[in-house]
Design a protein around this nucleic acid. Sequence first.
DNA 1: GCGGCATGTATTGTATACAAAATGCACAGG
DNA 2: CCTGTGCATTTTGTATACAATACATGCCGC
Lengths: 226, 226
Amino acid sequence: MSKASDRAYSVIRDLILSGELAAGAPLREEALAEKCGVSRTPIREALNRLEAELLIQRTESQRSFVAEWSLDEVADAFELRAVIEGIAARRAAERMTPEILQKMRRCDTAISEAVARDTADVDAYLDANREFHALIVEAAASPRLAGILATLVEQPIVWRTAHHYGAEELRRSHREHGELLAAFARRDGLWAQDIMGAHIRRAFHAYADAHGGLSAIDTAPARRSS
Amino acid sequence: MSKASDRAYSVIRDLILSGELAAGAPLREEALAEKCGVSRTPIREALNRLEAELLIQRTESQRSFVAEWSLDEVADAFELRAVIEGIAARRAAERMTPEILQKMRRCDTAISEAVARDTADVDAYLDANREFHALIVEAAASPRLAGILATLVEQPIVWRTAHHYGAEELRRSHREHGELLAAFARRDGLWAQDIMGAHIRRAFHAYADAHGGLSAIDTAPARRSS
DNA sequence: GCGGCATGTATTGTATACAAAATGCACAGG
DNA sequence: CCTGTGCATTTTGTATACAATACATGCCGC
């Protein structure tokens, strides 16, 4: 899109994702325009995009606020993402090309390096991880799927949570990526679909565990009952 | 949304869905503004929405054209819709309330009447059918699902095709709705999900049969091989 | 003191004017 | 005849001004 509205979109989005604009905070067009150094026109375009992605909510009179997410809504988003990104993985496996597979292997290497260090490089991990998932979407070759997933992958709370990932979670995620690569190399769509579904669902439970609302039966390791 | 941009959205959308603006036709903002009786500002909002719904496509220099749909892309959209509306049906069944169920029964009655006449009232059928599916989305109680489905349900070619439905297709569709109601009444999510998936997939094949690109093994009734 | 209404203020919606960018055409050069 | 460059025109992007609407404050009646 155009330059100014793109910048406005990025700025506002980052303000929300970083938490600088707290959930429920009101968004006034003029204030944002000043902050972004542009006029209200591109701001309005940016707000429309952000509303479509559910990062902001509007009252019936069109006033904008940073969206507030209940655990239920986050669970919803994860559930949808698990299903849809699962489909993307299946399609990707069926349509995988050597070129994309090679790129994914390079991503995997990058992730491996980011995770290997004692103090894991979370930013590098997130970048490579994003690229990895983007390549899957590319291989799936469905603009529609891409558009839908784009609104599901960047969830503000999750984004913030990822920075608190422990080395353990990061390494597990890396292992699951390795399995995905195997499924892609074999062009086994259903395998890829199941791995991806499990991958996303595990991420959700990691999130839920870290954020109060435990819905699990038991959070401690299993032990003898007597 | 606001009045003028809403009207502009509806007008342009109808022009596309009705085929008055053919696939590939260029869309100039000023011309649309004149046609809609508003200025370019609301037109631009409308175009952004329509682009998000993939009804229009843009060149790298932001020029807009009515989207062209290949059979593959239509198949994609149907496949995604089958999966996602299936999920919506499952959730709806699990969360069904007597109020919504009653409304759905009224829709079903309306559909029944539209279909019963000798010359089926296709417009009445389409309206009631839309309402029926909208109620399912409402019962599913997921804004995210609703948003995603909104971009999938109204496909221009399908919309035009529906007007050529024969009484036979309409009655079959009505029967499937009856089954859905049974699944909802029993709160059987998986049943509802499977019926919905089959419902959408059947609709796709009806479309594909009517539009050249046959991908089926056989379109004639089965016969002895000798 | 409390509820409802009216007025002022804040905020969003639309129109218009202008700036930037791109496309098509014409023309010159090879 | 083809190609590339430069200009004219068209088209989109942004800013600003103005209109419409919603919200909040305070006042009046009860």
